[in-house]
Amino acid sequence: MQAFIALSRRPGGTFAMLAVTLLCLVAIAAPLIAPYAPNAIAPANRLMEPSWQHLLGTDHLGRDILSRLIYGARVALGISLSVIAISLSTGVALGIAAALSPRAIDLAVVGVFDIVTSFPSIILALALVAVFGPGLGNVVLLVSIVFIPHFGRVARAQTIAIRNSPFIEAEKVLGAETWRVVLHHVTPNIIGPIFVLACMDIPVVITIEAGLSFLGLGVRPPLASWGNLLNDGYTYLDQSVWLATFSGLALVLATLGFALLGEALRDTLDPKLRKAL
């Protein structure tokens, strides 16, 4: 509870929490609140303007834009959370292992991290998807690879910072096996900054997914992903601006929400900044 209060005091903190909460609720409750089925085609109603019947209008196949956006939130959150979960756990495991391993192994892991991060993330994701093919599963896996070094590097640096601290050495002297030291003493002490990083990476993943889908390399239509919606909106932009506008807005809202939450979280978790409150 205190954490929430502290968060809400940060600039943008309240907005961030509201935006993220809204997004999560919408994604979870999609079937309950969406007025129409997301893929219900009604050619007679194509490209309608917002009205009481279709709050945000319809697309070129007469599908309800609001419903598709609501289901799109599911896709966006689902993909970004799975990507973060995979890359965070793999990255943290690799980072800690590298920090605690002999120098040669450490250098090898860091080298791989460096190679992966030397490409801009969207370009790398694009290249990987181009090679392995589009589709939901592939997108999740391949984008995860792009993000592993993010978490790996931070985990490694944090582990190096504490690996020789007295409380870690005290456990070793007590006879604790390495797995126990890593699980009970290293991880809890390095995970804070990594969660902040995760929060800040979620919007990046959402935009990468949207970008890939927009280019036709991501989630395959007719699945309602925000990138697909944006693509459709772009195609019919000369006939109707609503689809492009609303899907763009959804993307901006989600991105901003998570980014601000990450920043607020970072400020709250950093004891040096916390004192200034």
């Binding site: 601290s165 007295p166 050495e169 006879g175 009970h184 003493h185 809890p188 002490n189």
Partner: peptide, 20 residues
Amino acid sequence: LQRRIQLLFQDPVASLSPRL
């Protein structure tokens, strides 16, 4: 055998895991 030898650290607070 190694566990029979224990170390009392100079700085007691630093020798305790801060999150436990």
